[in-house]
């Protein structure tokens, strides 16, 4: 029977158990969260159905709106910077330069460290190391902890970009390696070199990789959490509270489990729709450029 269909049972053994585990530990809790978003559950004890009350309350909650605005701003700049810099790095590393492999290792190092660890390390650097040098050199802007100022989010942005560069560079690098050498030779003959060659030949050919990176970046940064918990805990004030941080803080520490579940459902819908729109738009571009 197996031979007839040409599908071995082994393939099912490879995929089905994982699907079951995924359902139990991921999909089911997610559905539970959706369910509780229609109740007034505090995370324990008795609860009642409250229909759409939680969802309606979100639109009246200024903190939620502020957090969304910050999250969008953060995701936009982080995505932009990460993609620009990782593309530059990838192009550099793809060229025939010396110390290529050591440089690759240097850039990949941050990715192997946990975000929380990096957050705590930079917390220390921003709080002690930089102000120390700022004060000794008499530079006023550097003599205080940036995480305690209105510019705290630049600090977080810097750390996030620095850490995320690694993975994106890797994807771009693998993309660049798929580009056939012949294409470049042909371009040379046609007189395309330098920037012109990059925008006319290289970038269009690695456009699918740009799509992946852009979508993954936006998705990841819209859910930024670890680095913020480690560095500012959402402060000063609410100025670096992303939506995930807000959900965690209010949901678990503020006993608003059901309400923040509703918030999480909305975040899910937002992330999914943004990703879909991005995919649509960027894939269309890919086709056009080819």
């Amino acid at each position: 029977m197996n031979e007839k269909r040409g599908i071995s049972i082994a393939y099912y053994l490879m995929t089905v158990p994982m699907a079951i585990l995924f359902f139990i530990f991921h999909t089911f809790p997610f559905l539970q969260g959706v369910f509780y978003s229609f109740t007034d559950w505090k995370g324990y004890g008795a609860w009642n159905f409250v229909a759409l009350r939680n969802y309606l309350h979100i639109f009246k909650d200024k903190d939620v709106i502020t957090a969304y605005l910050f999250t969008f701003k953060f995701a936009f700049f982080a995505t932009l910077l990460v993609n620009v810099f990782s593309l530059l790095l990838a192009c550099g590393l793809n060229a025939k330069i010396k110390f290529k492999n050591s440089l690759k290792a240097v850039y990949f190092l941050p990715y192997m460290l946990g975000t929380l660890i990096i957050g705590f390390v930079f917390n220390f650097i921003f709080a002690n190391v930089i102000p120390f040098w700022g004060q000794s050199l008499g530079i006023k802007a550097l003599s205080i902890n940036i995480l305690g100022t209105k510019s705290a989010w630049y600090g977080i942005l810097f750390v996030t970009v620095w850490q995320s560069l690694a993975f994106n560079t890797l994807i771009y690098l693998s993309g660049l390696q798929t580009v056939d050498k012949d294409v470049y030779e042909a371009a040379d003959l046609d007189g395309a070199a330098g920037l012109k060659r990059f925008f006319a030949i290289t970038f269009p050919l690695i456009a699918p990789f740009f799509t992946i990176n852009a979508v993954l970046c936006v998705k990841g940064f819209l859910m930024a959490f670890d680095q913020i918990m480690a560095m500012t805990n959402g402060g000063p004030g609410m100025s670096t509270t992303t939506i995930s941080v807000l959900i965690y803080k209010r949901g678990f520490q503020g006993a608003q489990f059901a309400y923040q579940s509703a918030n999480a459902v909305i975040l899910f819908l937002v992330v999914v729709s943004i990703s879909l729109v991005q995919l649509k738009v960027l894939e269309k571009r890919e086709a056009n450029l080819k």
Binding site: G235, G237, M238, T241, K249, R250, Q253, G254, A255
Partner: peptide, 12 residues
């Protein structure tokens, strides 16, 4: 318990 006074004071 959902009233985050600490955040308001930090903003202040």
């Amino acid at each position: 318990s959902g009233f985050d006074l600490a955040a308001l004071l930090s903003e202040f």
